[in-house]
Simulated scan of single mutants.
Amino acid sequence: MASETEIRLEETGSGGVYVLRPEAGEAARMTFSRAGDHLIVIDHTEVPEAFRGQGIGLKLVQRAVEDARRSGRKIIPLCPFARAQFQRHPDYSDVLES
């Protein structure tokens, strides 16, 4: 399984994407948009079929949670996968926008 240090954050003015490339070629991605200075909305997570079941999607969500904690941001997980991870991990509640 890929480690957190392999996750790359690519930001734009209005959002960004977390990218994890476990092997050459395909990459897992989780996109987000900004809703103000202190709020991000995770809107899509995509993990290639070959990497499913390895915890890669969870690693992307964990990285976003850690980044939100460091920056004082909150997260709205609109993406069904990210929303499910927030439900499974109550320890993420400190960054969940209520």
Rank of each mutant, 00 (worst) to 15 (best):
Met1Ala: 13
Ala2Pro: 15
Ser3Met: 09
Glu4Asp: 13
Glu4Pro: 00
Glu6Val: 00
Ile7Thr: 07
Arg8Met: 08
Leu9Phe: 01
Leu9Trp: 04
Glu11Thr: 14
Thr12His: 06
Gly13Lys: 11
Gly13Phe: 09
Gly15Thr: 04
Gly16Lys: 09
Val17Tyr: 03
Val17His: 06
Tyr18Gly: 05
Tyr18Pro: 04
Tyr18Glu: 03
Leu20Phe: 02
Leu20Ser: 03
Arg21Met: 09
Gly25Glu: 04
Ala27Gly: 02
Ala28Ser: 11
Met30Pro: 12
Thr31Cys: 01
Thr31Val: 02
Ser33Leu: 14
Arg34Val: 01
Arg34Gln: 02
Gly36His: 14
Gly36Ser: 12
Asp37Ser: 15
Asp37His: 13
Leu39Phe: 05
Leu39Thr: 13
Val41Arg: 14
Val41Leu: 15
Asp43Leu: 12
His44Gln: 14
His44Tyr: 08
Thr45Asp: 03
Thr45Gly: 01
Glu46Ser: 09
Glu46Asp: 14
Val47Phe: 02
Val47Ala: 01
Pro48Leu: 03
Glu49Lys: 02
Glu49Thr: 04
Ala50Met: 02
Phe51Tyr: 08
Arg52Gln: 04
Gly53Tyr: 03
Ile56Arg: 04
Gly57Thr: 04
Gly57Phe: 02
Leu58Glu: 12
Leu58Thr: 14
Val61Lys: 08
Val61Leu: 05
Val61Gly: 09
Val65Cys: 10
Val65Ser: 13
Glu66Gln: 11
Ala68Leu: 03
Ala68Cys: 11
Ala68Val: 03
Arg70Asn: 13
Ser71Cys: 06
Ser71Glu: 15
Gly72Gln: 05
Gly72His: 10
Gly72Ile: 07
Gly72Pro: 08
Ile76Asn: 00
Ile76Pro: 00
Leu78Ile: 05
Cys79Phe: 08
Phe81Lys: 06
Phe81Asn: 08
Ala82Pro: 05
Ala82Ile: 07
Ala82Val: 04
Ala84Phe: 00
Phe86Gln: 05
Phe86Tyr: 08
Gln87Met: 09
Gln87Asp: 13
Arg88Glu: 10
His89Gln: 09
His89Thr: 10
His89Pro: 09
His89Ala: 03
Pro90Val: 06
Asp94Glu: 12
Asp94Leu: 06
Val95Arg: 09
Leu96Trp: 11
Leu96Lys: 12
Leu96His: 09
Glu97Asn: 13
Ser98Arg: 15
Ser98Gly: 15
